[in-house]
Amino acid sequence: MTEIILELKKLRKNFGGVVAVDHMDLTVESGSITSMIGPNGAGKTTIFNLITGFLKPSAGNILYRNTDISGMKPHVIARKAIARTFQNVQVFPQMTVLENVMVGRHIRSKSGFIISVLVPPFCRREDKKNRTDAEKWLDYVGLGHESDKTAGSLSLGNQRKLEIARALAMEPKIILLDEPASGLNARETVVMGRLIEKIRKMDITVVLVEHDMELVMDISDQIGVINFGRCIATGNPAEIQSNPEVIAAYLGE
């Protein structure tokens, strides 16, 4: 638990005059669950978008296993085994649940355009393996029985699980979960918490943005508190709960 997998150094992002993230420092230890909390609009999703390449930082660096990945394209970052989910669930609604997860196998398979056009599906060994792998991940998150439905027809809770299954199918080293429990009821939230802990046990580092404090305090090893684009405090759950600055930010002094 000492190796550092992800490090944000003096990260900054501004949209014109609006500063969304400023002077952001954060280190994530390999195999940990790190949570980012903070009020709405504090810049948490922006940080995720910076790490996964959807936005380019205005200044600062993002180090992943000691290499700078800032400014790389999303698909390049994905190939480095960094997976993510989205705050507003992004499944592929027209595709079946199984096919959704098979998209997650994209970086673990190779066949390109020419082979895809010329070789019929029943002759592809790679595809069969992708299918069985995808089925495995669906079972893992508990959606095995839904595999032939279209993803758009699932409930929100199941869509969130599907997104996680798709991310896990990438066999990531680190997974970024953007509010996985939002919109879920109390029971579903508990299930989600167990799922996240199960993911950590596979030695996958988890970075979590979440508003459900109970869930965050329950499972996190480290918590970073973000306010106005800055990290105002880091520490374990107990430290955060007793930090006066955090209490001030949350109670709105």
Partner: peptide, 19 residues
């Protein structure tokens, strides 16, 4: 195929396909 699923993924959500 793998490529076909990639294409349909772009249609469904370009961001999720990229990530």
């Amino acid at each position: 195929s793998r490529v076909g699923r990639g294409l349909r993924a772009i249609h469904g959500s370009e961001d999720a396909a990229g990530s």
